[in-house]
């Protein structure tokens, strides 16, 4: 039974997950573009490209006032995003699967690094969840789905780590890992996780606006 689920999860469901994720995000970007162009019709162009790019860079690196005003959350943010992306793209097991099906491959990181990075990412998620639950003002602001989205990201990490370390039942953990990762991908366009693409759009728009007023781009 578990093998049937596993085969579905690593086969058709992966295609479905990536299709939904990519077309969903593309739709959001195209919709933004169309609305923005319609609103700007007949007005002179005033987009400040340099400021937009600088605004993105200053937030992709911890070179902004938020890094100073909320240092712990900034650390947690980087400790979550960097390991998440590095492990997703450079874990040997991931690259091997891609090589087997498409014949493309790129360098990988040692598995022990992957374990450490995953633990760092999980710790960061734990910090963000605890902050939501314990910080008085943030607790009042938090809605249940804000915690659910953290759980959504934590599940593939947790099950992936468990599978690799052979904790619990290996086929079950691996199946849960693929399933939860697929679900995460599919939900990206419809949740706050859409910031994966829209972060760049929003920072560009705001950075350009700041540029018009000649304040900082960050």
């Amino acid at each position: 039974m578990i093998h049937v689920v596993y085969n579905f999860a690593v086969g058709p469901m992966v295609w479905l997950a990536f299709t939904i994720c990519i077309t969903g995000l593309a739709y959001r970007l195209i919709r933004y573009r169309r609305k923005a162009v319609a609103a700007k019709k007949g007005l002179p162009g005033d987009f400040r490209t340099t400021w937009a790019v600088r605004s993105m860079l200053y937030y992709l690196l911890p070179l902004n006032r938020t890094a100073k005003s909320s240092p712990w959350s900034t650390v947690a943010g980087f400790a979550l995003h960097i390991p998440l992306l590095v492990v997703a793209f450079f874990l040997s097991a991931h690259v091997i699967m891609l090589e087997q099906s498409w014949g493309v491959a790129w360098p990988t990181i040692p598995d022990v690094w992957a374990d450490v990075l995953t633990i760092i990412a999980l710790a960061a998620l734990g910090f963000l969840a605890l902050k939501r639950l314990l910080h008085p003002a943030l607790r009042g602001l938090t809605e249940p789905k804000d915690l659910l989205v953290l759980l959504l990201v934590a599940l593939p990490l947790l099950t992936g780590l468990a599978a690799h370390r052979q904790w619990g039942d290996y086929p079950l953990m691996l199946t849960l890992h693929v399933l939860s990762a697929n679900i995460l991908l599919m939900l990206i366009p419809f949740t706050k996780l859409s910031h994966m693409a829209l972060f760049f759009v929003s920072r560009a728009a705001t950075g350009s606006d700041f540029g018009k007023r000649q304040v900082g781009a960050w």
Partner: peptide, 28 residues
Amino acid sequence: GARLEMWLSICSRCGMCAEGCHYYASNP
């Protein structure tokens, strides 16, 4: 508009904006 739709859907309620607010500074 484009921005309103985008901003409503990506605000993650992380609360870091609080540091900039004078209402929050005087009464958190």
